[in-house]
Write a protein that binds this DNA or RNA. Structure first.
Length: 374
RNA sequence: GCGGAAUUGGUGAAGUGGUUAACACGCCGGAUUGUGGCUCCGGUAUGCAUGGGUUCGAUCCCCAUAUUUCGCC
């Protein structure tokens, strides 16, 4: 059975919505945060540890798995779930963002993107058909359309021809998609421009996907206002009975703002990347455990957190591990940070039920940024 | 006891008679939003063992002292 989305409730004062996704015969509530496991592993965590954070869907990446170990290896293993021993739902990103963010000397044409890969510089070409074929073989539960992800600095004229091409790519991908157990999502682009977002959303919806994403946000220093505009200009044109996914976001405040604007699911590398760099997300803001003030702080990172790290370890100990580059430190912080964002979505769902999400946001900001914020 | 060599920040060290003493590690901060990277970006010796001297000017030259180290007896 492919993905099913049900809208359960709309919040009274905002566009926030409570919903549920049934996928892989498992049901998860939205808003939801999806941890990122690019190379078929949420960095430093075992699948059991991922489950313990109460994560539902996780991400894996077409581009990376295509290069290593190759989609045929994964298919031989019996698909991504068996390969990585994760029985929860898996979404694969299409590779569009990776081509944009890390490939060298890329050449974007109607056919697809030619580029040199980041591992050995081999010349490669990724097309919509190729991306979908790889994802079909990986056998993820949700595949993403192959899109161009232009930088935030792209001008209007460039964006216009880019989103038109991305729509043509989406159509081509949909035509070759042939995994009956796999949902396929379309991606709305268009930068911070109302007209372009509207056009991109309407044309993408016409192709009738199983869910819709808002892409092209949180790129290379784009400011938050531009991101919120991109969401505001996209959401009205997306069907209410389909799930909405804001790609690559993110920061706690951006998840809250996204939910308020009608987004259902999010993914971001932030919790795991911050963890590897020694940072912890907490109700009272981000902590940098490398700071010397935590050297003899024998309290948990967050007293109220129910994660494995906070239940068993102190700031002092985690700091020590981070300072010594011990992988267990990154693991404990990854568990904590992922759990923090998932708990945030749990709290947001509760706020939607209670129709008090604006109060929730206000209270969150007060705690996270301090009294004098805004 | 005699002779030689060395002495630069928390550490390993580069260096020059003339504005701000290289670099690395460490340390102290910061960054991080569809993840190549234990990553990236800042800051970190008002000082060159101590005391004299030469010089317009010395971390750099000379002398003495101290410490370390090597060789010989």
């Amino acid at each position: 059975m492919k993905l099913k989305y049900e809208l359960l409730k709309e919040e009274k004062n905002t566009k926030a919505r409570l919903g549920q996704i049934t996928i892989r015969e498992q049901t998860y509530q939205t808003p939801m945060f999806m941890p990122v496991g690019t190379l078929a592993t949420v960095k430093t965590l075992s699948p059991e540890e991922v489950k313990e954070t109460k994560a539902g869907i996780i991400l894996a990446n077409t581009y990376h798995l295509w290069l290593r170990p190759g989609e045929d290896v994964v298919a031989l293993a019996g698909g991504l779930h068996k390969f990585m021993n994760y029985d929860g739902p898996i979404l694969t990103d299409s590779g569009g963002f990776q081509v944009f963010s890390l490939a060298n000397s890329k050449d974007i044409t109607e056919e697809g993107v030619r580029f040199k890969n980041h591992l050995n510089g081999d010349n490669l070409i990724l097309t919509p058909e190729k991306s979908i074929a790889i994802q079909n073989k990986l056998d993820s539960d949700i595949a993403m359309s192959f899109d161009e992800c232009p930088p935030a600095s792209a001008d209007y004229d460039y964006l216009k021809q880019s989103i038109e091409r991305t729509i043509r790519w989406a159509k081509r991908g949909k035509e070759v998609h042939n995994n009956p157990n796999q949902a396929l999502f379309g991606i709305v682009q268009g930068g911070p421009h109302e007209k372009l977002r509207k056009f991109s959303a309407e044309e993408t919806v016409k192709l009738d996907f199983d869910g819709y994403s808002i892409g092209g946000v949180a790129n290379d220093g784009e400011d938050k206002e531009a991101m919120y505009k991109a969401i505001d200009y996209s959401i009205p044109y997306l069907p209410k009975d389909k799930v909405r996914y804001l790609m690559g976001v993110g920061e706690p405040i951006d998840i809250i703002e996204g939910v308020i604007r009608g987004v259902d699911i999010f993914d971001c590398v932030l919790p795991t990347r911050l963890a590897r760099h020694g940072n912890a997300l907490t109700k009272y803001g981000k902590l940098n455990l490398k700071n010397s003030k935590y050297k003899t702080d024998f309290t948990p990172i967050d007293e109220s957190c129910d994660c494995y790290c906070c239940q068993h370890y102190t700031k002092s100990y985690v700091k020590h591990l981070i300072n010594c580059n011990e992988t267990f430190g990154a693991r404990l912080l990854s568990i904590h940070n992922i759990r923090f964002l998932i708990k945030l979505t749990e709290d947001l769902r509760e706020a939607i039920k209670n129709d008090n999400i604006l109060e929730f946001k206000k209270e969150f900001i007060k705690n996270y940024y301090g009294e004098d914020y805004e």
